[in-house]
Structures are given as C-alpha cells and as structure tokens.
C-alpha cells in the first residue's frame, strides 16, 4: 500500500473502530450490576468490557486524528502523486516481478486472493451438508484446476493436470478421513 492509501485505510478503519468501541461501551454499561444477587457491584460483567471499549475508543480516536493531520481530508492532490511521477509502490512492483504474465487474469494478485477466499469459504460452508470426503475431493480438484488452468492452451492438452488433481484429491481425502475418523475417532461433519 502507498502512504496515501494507507492513510485513507487508517481513516476509515478508525471510524469503524470508533463506532464499534462506542457500541461496546454502551452495551457494557447496560449489563446487570449483580447487586440484586447480593454480589459486589465490582463483579459486574460489564466492568472489563467498558475498560476495553474506552481504551479502543481512545486508540482509534488518536489514529483518526493522525490520519486527519496527515491530510486525508484534503482534496486528492497528492493521492495519485505516485502514479503521476511514473513511480509505483513496492507491492505493485513485486507483484509485477512475481507475475510472469501480467495480462492474464489468473496472474492478477487481487483475482487470485478473491478466488482463494471464495473457494475456501464455499468448502467451509458446505461442511455438514455434503459428505466430508466428497466435499474435500471436489474442493481440492477445483482448487488445483482453477489455479493451474492456462486459458491459452487447449482443454485437451490440460487433461493430465485434471488427472493429477483428481489423484491428489482422492489421496488427501482418503488419508484425512481415515486418520481423523478411524485413528482419532472424530465424528467428521
């Protein structure tokens, strides 16, 4: 992230954190004092969350002030200064250097992040609904095929990749199921 992007991110994060910390304080204050149970008022379950809420409020408040001090609210004069200068951030540079083909969608870091999150979240969400070994098999095959797929090559020439993916998926699925279900006696979802 460039400095201006980070400053912007800090600004929005601090606002979110301020709202959350205010919520924590309000909910904590409303917790029962326990005096009706003849307990000390200091044993109130809201004491520590209130303290944490106040600390978080102060910390995010100072981050907000710092972001404003660094000029986040000023018109976007400097925001694109990096690109205007023709320079790029370290991260952008590294992504280019690590991506052999920057025109391909599959070498775009953001697309790869998105695909990883979507595939993994989907797999996690079907647990308990689909038989575990089958879900694992499908997930691993999909993961390998999606990331190894080369749009420039014909589908037929990539059949070997699919076969390998299926072998790896079958072995992993079987091994994990046997180890956890029969060795550790875990009731798999």
């Amino acid at each position: 992230m460039t400095e201006s992007t980070m400053n912007k991110a800090d600004f929005y994060t601090s606002i979110v954190l301020l709202i959350i910390s205010l919520g924590i304080i309000i909910i904590s204050i409303q917790m029962p004092s326990m005096t009706e149970r003849n307990e000390s008022q200091w044993s109130n379950p809201g004491v520590v969350p209130t303290f944490i809420g106040i600390a978080l409020f102060l910390l995010s408040g100072s981050m907000l002030l710092r972001a404003i001090k660094r000029g986040v609210l000023k018109k976007n004069e400097n925001i694109n200064s990096d690109s205007k200068n023709g320079t790029i951030g370290v991260e952008e540079a590294s992504s280019i250097s690590k991506s052999p083909d920057k025109n391909s969608l599959f070498s775009n870091p953001y697309f790869r992040i998105l695909i990883t999150i979507v595939l993994c979240s989907l797999y996690a969400s079907v647990l308990g609904k689909i038989w575990f070994p089958f879900a694992t098999f499908v997930f691993i095959v999909l993961f390998i095929v999606v990331f190894e797929f080369d749009p420039k090559k014909s589908l037929r020439s990539q059949g070997k990749k699919l076969l390998w993916a299926m072998v790896i998926a079958a072995c992993t699925s079987a091994a994990v199921t046997i180890v956890f279900q029969y060795l550790f006696l875990v009731n798999l979802p």
Binding site: C120, Y123, A124, F139, F143, I144, T172, S173, V176, F180
Partner: peptide
C-alpha cells in the same frame, strides 16, 4: 499444497 493445508486447517 495449499488446498491440502486448508483441508487440515479446517478439519
């Protein structure tokens, strides 16, 4: 490697 690692994370 990573899908196998994720499977282990999950289980």
């Amino acid at each position: 490697l990573m899908p196998i690692v994720f499977t282990l994370c999950l289980i």
